[in-house]
């Protein structure tokens, strides 16, 4: 690799985080400001600063817990932590990486099934229509999660208000979109 003696070396997941996102976990001094401002931290199993701490240890067991955590899925990427971090640590970027990695290693938290299904149904819709076709997406999502009844009460009023299109508006260059998906996310079957 690089011969720069000052390059950031940390093994394990923290090292991977750095290689993929330039986020140095050692840069965090555990002030907890991210956790204090995170709107979801009380729903997390480990608040953001704890995730940072677990990665700092380099302990494989704790790293495993990070990948299997619910935190990384309930994170909304609202960017509040990053905006207020005194060390300018891009936690949202790190969370993206951890999510991708958790899926890749099939370690996603079971509680996150609905969230992940949402993302996958969303992307499926984009893959096939180029856009987010809401009815198709809802149907797909509901099949994935079997949460058939949730939100069904919203559908008639939405249709009444003209908020749902029955027929998808298809993109013209569908093969182009399909090719983008093939070249990027193909490893992770959606």
């Amino acid at each position: 690799m690089s011969s720069d003696p000052h390059q950031y070396v940390i093994s394990g997941l923290g090292g991977e985080v750095f290689e993929n996102t330039e986020v140095k976990v050692s840069h965090c001094y555990q002030c907890g400001k991210c956790s204090a401002g995170c709107p979801l931290s009380e729903e997390m199993d480990y608040p953001p600063s704890m995730i940072m701490r677990m990665l700092q240890t380099g302990n494989p067991e704790l790293e495993e817990k990070v990948l299997r955590s619910f935190s990384i899925w309930v994170c909304l990427t609202c960017e509040m932590c990053y905006a207020r971090c005194p060390m300018s640590i891009d936690i949202p970027k790190m969370m993206d990486f951890l999510r991708e990695k958790a899926i890749e290693e099939k370690k996603a938290n079971p509680k996150a099934k609905q969230i992940i299904s949402f993302h996958k149904s969303f992307l499926d819709s984009v893959k096939y229509t180029g856009k987010m076709y809401e009815i198709g997406f809802y149907a797909d999502y509901k099949t994935r999660t079997l949460k058939i009844l949730d939100d069904m009460l919203l559908v008639p009023p939405m249709i009444k208000r003209g908020k749902l299109s029955i027929i998808p508006e298809l993109i013209k260059d569908r093969s182009g979109i399909a090719s983008i998906f093939r070249k990027t996310i193909k490893k992770n079957k959606t």
Binding site: F97, E100, I103, F118, K120, V126, G130, M132, K183, N188
Partner: peptide
Amino acid sequence: DDWNCCGATAAHSLNKELSLALPAR
């Protein structure tokens, strides 16, 4: 003309390249 979805949270949660490719298109 012929715009596509930006990928939203779903794309950047699951795949970095996809999350860049869609808006770039």
